[in-house]
């Protein structure tokens, strides 16, 4: 294992993040604050409690997940797409590194950035609503796992994308709807029975449910199922990446 290489990639990618730290952080904090003002305060004051939790507090885990998932995906996809676009990928391909090391470097950096943003949003949330975290360690674990698994997904998208439009396409067409329909702003139990069943095919439901459980101790689906779902998702992404590097798909001619 070439750890020096992993660290080099990680550091190089983090440098990109810190170069644009203001943009990187201002926009998620701003948009989250807007959500709190609109949903939490304005609309939330008219909504009854959901599962015994004030609506403003109820949406906090969903909001964090929403940002973390989109940020992890876009960071990781851009991180690997950019070298492809600039041609600097030649260096990765000719270096003594294997797929695991490249993935660790890029995905690690993207996940760190997303985690950073998730934590900032959590801190922002404390300014708007009262929240207590029932299971802090589980909360961190769910957050980290989500950052990692969506960074893996983003990494795959970045390798697949042939242009900037495609880079935006998957997050826009698939991830955003899945996240919005995954119970970010409502409890799955609020849906009609048919939709409750359909929703169970949305992997994001398991992540948000598990994450919300770590805050409030209540969940839409069992916590064990949440963990299995996230492990399965992560594993599937890893297998896909391993296959990509083995076959050179879209990167090695």
């Amino acid at each position: 294992m070439n750890f020096t290489a992993v660290a080099s990639i990680y550091r190089f990618e983090m440098a990109r993040f810190f170069r644009t730290i203001t943009q990187s952080l201002v926009s998620p904090v701003l948009s989250t604050s807007l959500y709190f003002v609109v949903f939490g305060t304005a609309i939330g004051s008219r909504i009854q409690e959901v599962e015994g939790i004030s609506y403003g507090a109820f949406i906090v885990p969903g909001l964090i997940m929403l940002s973390v998932m989109t940020q992890a995906t876009s960071n990781a996809s851009f991180g690997i797409y950019f070298p492809k676009f600039m041609g600097t990928i030649y260096e990765l391909l000719s270096a003594p590194v294997n797929f695991l090391e490249i993935t660790l470097g890029y995905v690690g950096a993207a996940a760190t950035k997303a985690l950073f943003i998730g934590i900032i949003i959590l801190i922002t949330a404390f300014f708007f609503v009262d929240i207590t975290i029932a299971h802090p360690f589980a909360m961190i674990a769910f957050l980290v796992l989500t950052c990692v698994s969506f960074s893996l997904l983003g990494f795959i998208i970045g390798i697949w994308a042939g242009n900037f439009e495609q880079l935006q396409l998957i997050p826009l067409l698939i991830i955003t709807p899945l996240v919005f329909l995954g119970g970010s702003f409502y409890s799955v139990t609020m849906l009609p029975p048919v939709w409750q069943t359909i929703t169970m095919f949305n992997p994001v439901v398991y992540l948000i449910s598990g994450f919300r459980w770590s805050f409030f101790g209540t969940a839409d689906v069992s916590i064990g199922l949440s963990l299995i779902a996230i492990a399965f998702f992560t594993g599937a992404c890893l297998v896909a990446i391993w296959w990509i590097f083995r076959t050179g798909w879209r990167i090695r001619q």
């Binding site: 070439n2 020096t4 080099s8 600039m86 600097t88 260096e91 990765l92 270096a95």
Partner: peptide, 22 residues
């Protein structure tokens, strides 16, 4: 083919590290 936004020295450090050299 070069990363445009990094400094010369940092791109060199990156290359060296990528090959596992301290």
């Amino acid at each position: 083919n070069l990363e445009p936004f990094e400094t010369v020295m940092n791109t060199l450090r990156f290359s060296r590290g990528l090959f596992g050299k301290p």
